[in-house]
Design a protein around this nucleic acid. Structure first.
Lengths: 124, 124
DNA sequence: TATATTATTGCAACAATGTCGCATTAATAA
DNA sequence: TTATTAATGCGACATTGTTGCAATAATATA
């Protein structure tokens, strides 16, 4: 399955990249200057995730947020970073702070999802 | 609004307490030996959360999981612990490990949600 | 350039999770 | 025993996300 280059993909990638933050599906649909079907947006985002272009965060509101991978150099597991969701401006930012933990014997981690919720510097 | 003691509340509390882990709504509905309406289960769980009896974790699957607060001594904010979701046995356990982080200036945290996903010691 | 291949899209339908209004029931107080 | 009102069940609804299918369009091939 070779990927094809389409205007919709470009538009979503541009939006995510210029926002610099993680956006939920509805924020993307809202901000984008194009009429893209909901299902298509999800499919594009999921494909980006598969290809490692974008990563996915699930916040306390139960929604998925998507952000362009800035410094995910393939080994995204052990050095995952914290995310910060601001309830005022409704965005999620990737923090520089790495998530650090040690597990009891026998546990195997496949993915890490750490979201701090509150108000960001701009909003407080 | 004074709380009342009902069989349904007791049953849910017993189930959560004997399971010792965090359970999702559907797991509760599945395991409980009583026919309780979906909305009622949610309302009971939400009330437990309000009263500080139970805490709420949102996992990567976007679902809410509820667990009895073991050592949440009121100040649940700064010393939040990690949670571990096992994709094999479908449970979430509270780990002893505390979440440790420092924030950039101006950020204010209201809640912490850290879930590690993988396979637990029993399943691997 | 014209054509074939098939990835991508839009649409509709669907599933799952969670909430809410409202009438009824039942736990507590009087 | 009765009155008060918290709790429940039911139905409807909102939101988030996925899937099947036919139509479209991006790439490869001739």
């Amino acid at each position: 399955m070779k990927r094809r280059n389409t205007p919709t993909k470009q538009a979503i990638l541009n939006l995510l990249s210029q926002s610099g933050k993680a956006m939920s599906h509805d924020a993307i649909e809202d901000k984008i200057d194009m009429d893209i079907n909901r299902a298509t947006i999800y499919r594009i985002l999921n494909r980006f995730c598969e290809d490692g272009l974008v990563h996915n965060i699930v916040a306390e509101d139960g929604k998925q947020y998507f952000a362009i991978c800035m410094d995910c150099d393939g080994k995204s597991l052990p050095d995952s970073h914290f995310h910060f969701r601001c309830t005022s401006c409704q965005t999620i930012a990737c923090l520089k702070e790495k998530v650090d933990f040690s597990l009891p014997m026998g546990y195997k981690v496949e993915s890490v999802n750490c979201v701090l919720t509150g108000t960001c510097a701009d909003c407080s």
